[in-house]
Amino acid sequence: MNDRPGLRERKKAKTRAAIRKATYRLAAEEGWDAATTDRIAAEADVSPSTVVRYFPVREDIVLTDENDELLEARLRARPAGEEPLESLRAVVLEAVGTALGEEPAETRLRARLMVEIPSVRARFTETTAVTGRRLAHAVADRTGRDPDDLEVRIFTAAVLGALREATLYWAEQGTAGDLLPLLHRTVDTLRTGLTAPPAHP
């Protein structure tokens, strides 16, 4: 009896993975417009209603990875006293590195779609905000603040927004090179800010 929920969850995960794989394949080979709900369903060997049930928003198929809970847990597990910026750097870049290592083609395609398809880019902005609100709770707990404190919200949104912008920059450059150094550079920029060039006499 205890095995039944586990089996059910495994079946759900398998279905989600099939839908994702079909969507990426269609988008890569024929473009985003070809990745309709009906085409995705046929490719994944499921019904269109199943696709909609698992992903009510089509763009979420290529954007949502269900990692928010894991990110929050890893953020809470960072060493006590570590600066919040370094904590966020560690957990977010670890997640990105894992994605690049396990699904390099899908990660690059996702970034390209975010640049080329307005609806995907808009949804990416929305999902980043949702992730930020969740991580703000962990940041607040680690800094002894309330999650709704303006400073907590600004800080978390700024970090994730900057990392999102760096990802878009990477995609605009054709996803050439390694994304991780760009993300480290982004966090470093948040830390140091910008300085004006020296004035010429």
Rank of each mutant, 00 (worst) to 15 (best):
N2H: 14
D3W: 03
G6Y: 13
R8D: 14
K12W: 03
K12S: 07
K14L: 15
K14C: 09
R16F: 04
A17M: 10
A17C: 04
A18V: 06
A18T: 06
T23Q: 00
T23K: 00
T23G: 00
Y24S: 01
Y24I: 03
Y24H: 11
R25E: 12
L26V: 08
L26W: 10
L26G: 05
L26M: 08
A27S: 12
T36M: 06
T36E: 08
T36I: 07
D38W: 15
D38Q: 15
A41P: 13
A42H: 15
A42V: 14
A42I: 12
V46H: 09
S47G: 09
S47I: 02
S49L: 09
S49W: 14
S49N: 11
R53C: 01
R53A: 11
R53H: 14
R53F: 11
R53M: 08
R53Y: 14
F55R: 03
P56C: 11
V57A: 11
R58A: 02
R58G: 03
D60W: 06
I61H: 10
I61G: 08
E66F: 15
D68K: 04
E69D: 15
L70Y: 07
L70D: 11
L71M: 10
A73T: 14
R74G: 01
L75N: 00
A77C: 06
R78P: 05
L85K: 03
E86K: 12
E86G: 10
L88K: 01
R89S: 11
L93E: 15
E94Q: 02
A95I: 04
G97Y: 01
T98H: 15
E102L: 14
E103V: 07
T107P: 03
L109S: 07
R110V: 02
A111G: 05
R112T: 08
V115C: 05
E116D: 11
I117V: 15
S119F: 01
V120A: 02
R123T: 07
F124Y: 13
T127S: 06
A129E: 14
V130Q: 03
R133H: 10
H137E: 14
D141Q: 13
R142S: 03
T143N: 03
T143H: 02
D146I: 00
D148G: 03
D149S: 04
L150E: 10
E151L: 11
E151T: 12
R153E: 00
T156S: 02
A157E: 13
A158Y: 05
V159A: 07
L160V: 04
A162N: 12
L163T: 05
R164V: 03
R164T: 09
E165A: 15
A166M: 05
A166S: 13
T167C: 11
L168K: 03
A171M: 05
A171Y: 07
E172K: 04
E172Q: 07
A176S: 07
L179K: 04
L179M: 05
P181N: 09
L182W: 09
H184A: 05
R185M: 14
T186L: 03
D188I: 00
D188H: 04
T189V: 12
R191E: 13
T192Y: 13
T195D: 15
T195R: 15
P197G: 00
P198C: 08
H200T: 14
